[in-house]
Computed example of a mutant assay.
Amino acid sequence: MSDRIAEFGAGERTSAERGAVGPGGAGRGGTGRGSARLPRLVATDLDGTLVGRDDRVSERTAEVLSRMSAAGTAIVLVTGRPVRWMPTVYAHLPAPYLSVCANGGVIYDPASDRVRDSWAIPPALLSELCLRMRAAVPGVVFAVEVDDGRAMRYEPAWPVRWDVGLPTSESAPLAELTERPAVKLLARAPGVGSDEFVALIESIVDGEVVPTHSSRSGLVEMSARGVTKATGLATVAAELGVDAADVLAFGDMPNDVPMLKWAGRSVAVSNAHPAARAAAGDITLSNEDDGVAAYLERLLEPAP
Score class of each variant (00 low, 15 high):
297 E>I: 12
294 A>Y: 10
181 P>I: 01
256 D>N: 09
55 D>A: 14
52 G>S: 08
252 D>W: 01
200 L>R: 15
39 P>F: 00
303 A>V: 08
293 A>E: 10
5 I>S: 06
126 L>C: 04
167 P>K: 12
184 K>Y: 02
11 G>N: 14
11 G>T: 14
222 M>P: 06
49 T>F: 08
32 G>E: 01
55 D>K: 14
53 R>W: 07
151 A>W: 03
166 L>C: 11
192 V>T: 13
111 A>M: 08
165 G>Q: 10
219 L>F: 00
197 F>L: 12
129 L>I: 12
188 R>G: 00
297 E>N: 12
104 G>T: 00
146 V>D: 01
226 G>P: 03
264 G>A: 08
74 A>M: 00
84 R>W: 03
112 S>K: 13
202 E>P: 02
217 S>I: 11
169 S>V: 00
213 H>A: 05
142 F>G: 05
167 P>Q: 13
96 P>C: 06
164 V>A: 15
286 S>V: 10
31 T>L: 15
2 S>E: 06
85 W>H: 08
161 R>N: 12
279 A>R: 05
297 E>S: 13
73 T>F: 02
112 S>P: 07
44 T>E: 09
154 Y>D: 05
82 P>Y: 07
43 A>D: 14
88 T>Y: 13
33 R>A: 07
55 D>H: 13
203 S>Q: 14
170 E>I: 07
63 E>W: 12
225 R>P: 01
196 E>K: 11
66 S>A: 15
105 G>Y: 01
267 V>D: 00
304 P>C: 09
26 A>K: 03
156 P>G: 15
46 L>Y: 08
150 R>Y: 01
156 P>V: 15
178 T>V: 15
77 L>T: 04
116 R>G: 04
217 S>Q: 13
160 V>I: 15
70 A>L: 09
118 S>H: 03
217 S>W: 07
99 S>E: 05
297 E>T: 12
122 P>Y: 00
43 A>L: 15
27 G>Q: 04
63 E>K: 14
100 V>W: 05
32 G>R: 03
49 T>I: 11
35 S>Q: 13
96 P>F: 06
234 A>M: 01
263 A>C: 03
145 E>D: 15
233 L>W: 06
226 G>M: 02
278 A>T: 10
51 V>D: 04
254 P>G: 08
143 A>V: 09
137 V>L: 01
273 H>R: 00
117 D>K: 13
283 I>Y: 02
184 K>F: 00
39 P>Y: 00
47 D>I: 02
35 S>W: 14
137 V>E: 04
222 M>G: 04
33 R>G: 03
117 D>H: 15
162 W>D: 15
215 S>C: 13
101 C>T: 09
74 A>C: 02
192 V>C: 09
141 V>N: 07
136 A>H: 07
296 L>S: 06
189 A>T: 02
127 S>R: 11
52 G>K: 03
161 R>V: 12
45 D>P: 06
300 L>Y: 10
256 D>W: 06
132 R>P: 03
124 A>V: 15
13 R>H: 13
2 S>P: 08
238 A>D: 05
3 D>C: 02
248 L>C: 12
234 A>F: 05
111 A>C: 10
278 A>P: 08
8 F>I: 12
16 A>F: 05
43 A>E: 11
171 S>D: 09
267 V>R: 04
185 L>Q: 07
292 V>Q: 04
177 L>A: 09
304 P>M: 10
151 A>F: 07
295 Y>K: 14
299 L>A: 09
